[in-house]
Write a protein that binds this DNA or RNA. Structure first.
Lengths: 201, 201
DNA sequence: CGCTTTCTGTACTATTCACTACAAAATACC
DNA sequence: GGTATTTTGTAGTGAATAGTACAGAAAGCG
């Protein structure tokens, strides 16, 4: 693939800023303050552009948020595929997922919690639905992974994992320290071990 | 006590509405939509009054919210004192607390989740601090209750309970059905039993 | 060069936000 | 009745919101 080289520039006046970098900057803003608390003026100021340039590039606030969510799932989301391994006990992998979530949710003190989980609770319908759709996809992945070896418990255990992640994200945003959050995640992990013990290795 | 009879009416023009009932109506609004999504105009319209009457009675939006939180803890909050019994196993009582939380968080489909937990994440500093203060008080009650018989595990287990409640509130607001939420709470309750087993009855 | 296309900056729109100035109304006290 | 006191309705305040109209600038294409 061509990494930075564009084959043929478009016709008109060139854009003064890089849209991808704008999405990255916006991601930090949304993650730090939440969707509702970020205004278009905040974004245009951070990008050093004016409103018309913003709307030409992203269409709307929700449109920008959709691109932010895409970027988040591509670069910052939890690596489900790596964590949920078929060659390891299900509970062990889910526990590792929760631990990694706890670590990631406080990795950047200026942008705590999960961008997607927090996005599902914003006050804008379009942005909320976009975040919920992404969250629903992740929960399907988790439930399907569990169901392969624990079909009976899949729904309940997947719900527990999703609720634990939501709770960890909330507590991360409430200012919990990394150690404290990790201890909670480990306790939830032990609950998973107990719940799925003795059925399949 | 005098229930509805006031001994001596104040001097000036009588108020056209009942402030206590206004707080109750506002509580429903805040619980249903969240603090940020409720405007003064929403409240004045719901109470059938005009802005000056509102500000004369409640001072500000955050002032009204403080009174709503007071009313919530007095009438709708979980009955910690009844649930956390000294004559029953700690884990059993905490599990009952989580089950009751799950039930209450979806009891009214138009006002899901916990008013306090959700309030800790709003975008207004004053309202957020008020909700956090109330939440902190509840978590002290829980930790103190655990510490009486399980001092070593008190902090970690209390954090787990608080995180579970935050997660349950989040999932309630995400539209989970009562049965599903209850199953999650029961699983968290089993985790508590496991964590506190064998130390004290 | 001249034309088309795209973006940019200036300056706006209309709406909503929390909150208030002010004078009239409605009561208690004398 | 007269006066003091408090609440009321009308009609605003200034600030912030998301989003735009428009004309000019900057590029590619012929």
């Amino acid at each position: 693939m061509n990494s930075t080289e564009s084959v043929s520039r478009p016709r008109g006046r060139p854009r003064r800023f890089d849209a991808e970098q704008g999405v990255a900057t916006a991601q930090h803003l949304f993650h730090a303050r939440g969707y509702d608390a970020v205004s278009i003026a905040d974004v245009t100021e951070a990008l050093g552009i004016n409103p018309p340039s913003f709307y030409a590039a992203f269409g709307s606030k929700a449109g920008l948020y959709a691109r932010v969510l895409d970027r988040y799932s591509a670069t910052d989301a939890l690596p489900f595929a790596d964590l949920l391994r078929p060659d390891r006990p299900v509970a062990e992998c889910l526990a590792a997922l929760l631990e990694m979530a706890a670590r990631q949710y406080v990795a950047d003190p200026a942008a705590t919690g999960c961008l997607v989980v927090e996005g599902t609770r914003c006050n804008d319908l379009e942005a909320r639905e976009a975040a919920r759709s992404l969250q629903a996809g992740a929960e399907v992945v988790i439930r399907t992974y569990i169901a392969a070896r624990h079909p009976q418990e899949a729904q309940r255990v997947a719900d527990f994992v999703g609720t634990a992640m939501a709770g960890l994200s909330a507590k991360a945003r409430n200012g919990f320290e990394p150690d404290r959050l990790l201890a909670i995640a480990r306790m939830a992990g032990r609950a998973l071990m107990q719940e799925l013990s003795g059925k399949t290795a």
